[in-house]
Amino acid sequence: MVIDKLKNAPLYYGLGQRFQQALEWLAKVDPDSLTPGQRVDIDGDNVYATRFDVDTKLPANCKLECHRNYADIQYVVSGTEGMGYSLPDAPLKQLSEYTPDIQFFTTDWDTVTVRPGTFYIVWPQDLHAPRVALESPAPVKVIVAKVKLN
């Protein structure tokens, strides 16, 4: 898992060409030019992004998720959210099967505050719960870039 400010994105270009494409795109895109829910193909199914305008949820209403074929780069444009995360050795309870590239779990987890201008990258082994309310539900605007791993 990586958490950093978008201004530091060039530090992560070494993760590979697809990560570089996604991070460069995030740095130059005008979020207001995107419609909420709109998928933007950056490199077809290899790298694409979607803008989400949602309210954060109380922790009790959040589930940990993971992905098999893609890494997520979640970039907070406005608002502040918590990002729940599970330690790698935490005992997990599976809540769903993969459908099509997401699976849900529950366990004890901690939360990191994610403010505007910050992105985080999660790989398949990184169970994460996006859009966690820090005090009470509040609006947040997020762009999620999906980076195909193979």
Rank of each mutant, 00 (worst) to 15 (best):
A133L: 02
D101F: 13
V114H: 15
Q125Y: 01
D101L: 01
L134W: 13
V112W: 10
Q125P: 10
Y120H: 06
P124M: 00
I121F: 07
R115S: 14
R115I: 06
Y120S: 07
R131G: 07
L127W: 02
A129L: 03
Y120M: 00
H128Y: 01
T118P: 02
R131Q: 13
F119C: 03
L134N: 04
T118N: 13
T118S: 07
Q125E: 04
A129T: 11
P130Y: 09
G117L: 12
F119D: 08
D101Y: 01
R115W: 01
V132Y: 05
W109T: 02
F104L: 12
L134V: 04
Y120E: 04
I102C: 10
E135A: 15
T107A: 15
I102K: 07
L134R: 03
I102F: 05
E135R: 09
W109H: 10
P137L: 08
T106L: 02
W123S: 10
T113Q: 11
P137H: 11
T106E: 12
F119L: 07
T107P: 06
R131E: 13
V112M: 14
T118M: 15
F105Y: 12
P137F: 11
E135C: 08
E135S: 12
T106Q: 08
A138M: 03
D101N: 05
F104T: 10
H128W: 07
V114W: 06
D126K: 10
P130I: 07
D126Q: 11
P116R: 09
T111I: 15
D108T: 12
V132T: 05
W109F: 15
A133K: 02
A129H: 05
F119A: 00
T113E: 15
D110N: 14
T113N: 14
Q125A: 03
Q125D: 13
E135I: 12
S136K: 15
F105G: 03
H128D: 01
T113M: 10
D110S: 01
P116C: 06
I121D: 07
V122K: 05
A129D: 09
I102G: 01
P116I: 13
H128R: 00
P137C: 15
T113C: 15
V114C: 15
L127K: 10
T113W: 05
T106A: 04
P116A: 12
T106I: 04
T111N: 11
P130D: 05
G117Y: 08
I121N: 02
R131K: 13
V132N: 09
T106H: 06
V122C: 13
V114D: 08
G117K: 13
I121G: 06
D108L: 09
W123A: 11
Y120W: 08
D126H: 13
F119R: 09
P137N: 11
D110P: 09
D108E: 14
V132M: 08
H128I: 09
P137T: 11
P116V: 10
V132Q: 00
L127A: 14
T111S: 05
F104D: 07
P124R: 10
F105M: 11
V132D: 00
T118Y: 11
R131N: 14
P130G: 05
T113Y: 12
H128N: 00
R131D: 06
L134P: 02
I102R: 05
P124C: 01
W123D: 05
P116K: 06
T107Y: 11
V112E: 11
A138K: 00
V132E: 02
D108V: 14
I121P: 08
P124K: 03
A133H: 12
L127C: 00
T111D: 03
S136G: 14
T113L: 00
P116G: 06
T111V: 15
L127I: 01
S136C: 01
